[in-house]
Write a protein that binds this DNA or RNA. Structure first.
Lengths: 131, 131, 131, 131
DNA sequence: GTGGTCTAGACCACC
DNA sequence: GTGGTCTAGACCACG
């Protein structure tokens, strides 16, 4: 399945679901018109509360990523890809800016910040080999 | 005053106070042995409830950053600097790693990520000139 | 229930709760992974304000004794026992030393002190029969 | 001077004064009819707030340990010794009982408790040699 | 004046 | 339902 939840993640579970699905769509793993799992099925599979899944689906519907087909379920909307693709970048960019501003706000110099970034990027690569 | 609250910040007010004071200490703006503003004074100044300030101060005490002097107030503990200095970096480093992992997790390539970082750092500098 | 409050005890209520729970954990009465009573339930049961319970729970969380499971409640952390067990003894030892030093400080000879201890221990036993 | 304050002691300063004076009286270091230092003198000497000394003296007066002589100051009451002597023991006894009960209350066996006591008494002696 | 404890009750996010 | 944050205001001990 294209969705997996990390209970340790501070991100709310429903938000994790929303992001994972958007990622799968941006990715091409899930295509427009495809049916997504029912609330009950996904809840059972992830061993979480159906309310949580329902909320995620509600958010996705509100954002026009999926739409209800009467008697059938929720399908990925046409054009969803085009909205998920850039969003991914926008989200990360916002997070980056937030962290950078916090760093500056707490008195860390640009040079220090760059050093930290380089360091963390390095660790990321090493991790990539065999996680 | 070395403490200011940002109501737009999603961080709880008491946590903002804790961080600001730690930063001021790491910074050298507040020295060991110095009295910090009384609960009531700071509450009045920030226009928040004294309990909220008290909670922040309580956390600081639990962390050994400040200690109470009976009938006088709270004083920055000796050695507080040594504990506040590294914490600042550790916090930022953790945030960076978190964002980077999220980026990788959501399928952004290292090259893309580096481009994003460079872009945001550029914006940060421009902002610095006239915010 | 494993928690009971003594209103006559000069110890703050929230601190009594913290200690009782730690004791219950050290004791094996409450195990790692178990849910502890909800803030509202315990407050109702002890007829105290929920905030007071929340404060105790907050302290326990800060000490890593319990951890929150979103939307579910607070759970005894793994390894909590190992931290609660020795603390119990350390606390009593500190209290003992304090009293002994006070005794010496106020001019009581070692012989007198030992006599006092023997006497009080004797009373303790007698009390044990029918308190 | 027969009085010294320990700011690190959790005991309130005024209570420390009360106890020190009572001890000096029980001790014979200060005799009935003797004048005790004026509030201002003692406050200056100990570098504490005169209010604190005044409170200690008020308590001592209320307990009949000292009494006011108009235009002169406070003098140690006749019979003060007889009341200070036994009180010292009573106080320590109460503290001992309190600790013992707390130990039992927190599930420590009598054997464990005795071991702890022996251990702490041993440390006390060693400390006695060269503090 | 100082901090500390407690109560009461509101609002929020999450499940 | 769960915990978390915040406000408002009372009372206490201490200096």
């Amino acid at each position: 399945m294209f969705i997996a939840i990390d209970p340790a993640d501070p991100l709310p579970i429903y938000e994790q679901i929303v992001r994972r699905l958007k990622f799968a769509i941006a990715n091409g793993a899930v295509r427009s018109g495809e049916l997504i799992p029912s609330v009950r099925d996904l809840a059972r599979e992830l061993a979480i509360n159906p309310n949580t899944v329902a909320r995620a689906y509600r958010d996705l519907q509100a954002q026009g990523i999926v739409s209800a087909v009467r008697g059938t379920g929720l399908v990925v909307a046409t054009g969803a890809v085009d909205r998920c693709q850039p969003e991914r970048l926008k989200l990360i960019r916002a997070r980056l800016r937030q962290v950078f501003e916090e760093a500056r706000h707490s008195g860390i110099s640009d040079r220090e910040l760059k050093k930290l970034i380089a360091h963390e990027l390095g660790q990321l690569k090493r991790q990539k080999v065999s996680p």
